[in-house]
């Protein structure tokens, strides 16, 4: 499965690149990621969040990089869900923003993990990546993923429809956080 998405962020290409190149930042806006840990200059260890299939982890390496312009990576060894990605950072015509063009490729296997991944992406696989990029834009332009009362947990917004009502969270809900 190949997913593409794009957004424009009012930051310079070098800033957006630098944020993405620190792969440990990816889980702040990519819904399916729990954690990315850098294990070397070009290598990293990724783990996916529950909706993507429990305990899905893999190692990845950067295979292509041009600072400020382009980054490519792919999973290594025997990942449960072999995957690869590239992202290009292109100056926008306004002279101050950067177009971010992302391509993700998943080699969805059979079995339970494959099913969980397919279910996660649902009928509109693009929507997930579009929303990921919206959050990337929020983080880079405003400093944080924006939360509302109806969708207080940022990364889970879409999964939650119909949402909780647009009224403040109770102390119990706040305590439980996104696991509520």
């Amino acid at each position: 499965m190949e997913l593409t998405a794009t957004t424009t962020i009012r930051r310079s290409a070098s800033e957006v690149y630098a944020f993405w190149r620190d792969l440990e930042n990816l889980p702040t806006f990519m819904a399916h990621l729990e954690q990315v840990r850098s294990t070397g200059d070009r290598t990293s260890h990724w783990s996916a969040a529950a909706p993507f299939g429990k305990n899905v982890e893999w190692d990845a390496e950067i295979i292509d990089e041009t600072p400020g312009e382009k980054l490519g990576w792919r999973s290594t060894a025997n990942a449960d869900v072999p995957n690869a990605g590239t992202v290009r950072f292109v100056p926008a015509p306004d002279g101050e923003s950067t177009e971010v063009h992302v391509v993700l490729v998943y080699d969805i296997p059979g079995g339970a993990v494959g099913k969980a991944v397919a279910k996660y992406f649902g009928e509109e696989p693009h929507q997930q990546l579009d929303d990921d990029l919206r959050r990337l834009k929020q983080v880079l332009e405003t400093g944080e993923v924006v939360r509302s009362d109806g969708a207080p947990w940022g990364k889970r917004a879409l999964k939650e429809f119909p949402q909780r009502p647009a009224q403040p969270l109770s102390d119990a809900e706040l305590e439980k956080g996104a696991d509520a």
């Binding site: 929303d131 939360r147 917004a157």
Partner: peptide, 19 residues
């Protein structure tokens, strides 16, 4: 960019249900 153009009700970042 919308806010920079004073198109505040079209702000690109403040709607968590943008999708």
């Amino acid at each position: 960019a919308a806010c920079a153009a004073e198109l505040y009700s079209c702000c690109e970042n403040t709607n968590p249900n943008a999708g």
